[in-house]
Design a protein around this nucleic acid. Structure first.
Lengths: 167, 167
DNA sequence: CTCCCTCGCTAACAGTGTTAGCCTGAAATT
DNA sequence: AATTTCAGGCTAACACTGTTAGCGAGGGAG
């Protein structure tokens, strides 16, 4: 069997993290990851069960870093919202892997997702439904922006201002 | 060269449409598409330049049908918004291909995207920025719902009610 | 009748994730 | 010290993806 918790596994994790940041989700292939470690792709499977394990790990890191960024932001809704956007745009690949591909719930630490969700809920108030709407608003804005769905002459700063006013 | 406008091409288009609806974006492979036409995959290239041409066509159809659905909906913002959700949930694969993967702008009819955008803008009023925020809100809600990002005990009807109230 | 062109085909290439099986060197056991 | 075991590399291979090259049959045009 494989050693799924040795030091090489840690190297794989950081290499995957760097590779994701540099090349994005599409560039994150097992062979590219192996290359970075001067290893052949099949050898990765001595340390990792499958690619989803790597993806899940990155999703977890994304959620953690994202949560930390929001927590560090100012207390106002406005500051939190702007931080949401800022973080997503500064970490598009990390944002993408956590939110634009299916979240591997079974393989990320339990409670992580709930923790982030709870934090977002705190931004708005105590009503979960309202909070989800606000979250959707921010996610939608960021997602459409990253996907390039807005025309490039769109005034997104102003759009966010309007969005925050809606909250 | 290839005949890029014969009757076979039309068959390819409808087969692609059906295949997308049945199997989703991931199931839309050239070989699966060819199978459905009792053809081998390379033969498709006698009628179509590449897969992106097929994807672009489906994106265009998605935009058209989506636009038509919104247009047919009642005049109120509420009715339009609920139709947005209804259509997206009833046509998840079509919605996904138009909005969750990069839009092949160069290969869909000019003005189609603008037309749909303009329609969404009409839902809210005349302010483009506000309109984009509203669009983002609806898109975010649908995207998170389709992605299964909301807990399954979430009251999404109520969430949409809150969202519409925010508009 | 002959030419040619459309539209099918197979074989192949580069890429993806992944499995099977081999081999080597080092650590652990006797 | 000698032996055994095994982690952790390797190559070969499979099934899948989009795609290209090149072959061949059939039908319409000259």
């Amino acid at each position: 069997m494989a050693n799924t918790d040795g030091p090489t596994r840690q190297k794989i994790r950081v290499a995957a993290y760097e590779l994701l940041k540099e090349k994005g989700v599409d560039g994150l292939s097992m062979r590219a990851l192996a290359d970075r470690l001067h290893i052949k792709a099949p050898s990765l499977y001595k340390h990792v069960q499958d690619k989803d394990e790597i993806v899940a790990d990155l999703q977890a890191r994304g959620l953690e870093e994202f949560g930390a960024a929001i927590k560090k932001a100012g207390k106002s809704k406005r500051a939190k919202a702007l931080t949401y956007r800022k973080w997503a745009l500064e970490n598009p690949h990390l944002y993408e892997i956590t939110v634009s591909i299916p979240l591997l719930r079974d393989r990320i630490p339990a409670g992580l997702e709930d923790g982030v969700t709870a934090m977002i809920i705190e931004i708005t108030g105590k009503d979960h439904e309202q909070a989800r709407a606000v979250w959707a608003l921010m996610h939608g804005l960021v997602d459409l922006e990253i996907a390039g769905r807005f025309p490039k002459d769109a005034n997104l700063d102003l759009t966010w201002k309007r969005a925050i006013a809606m909250i």
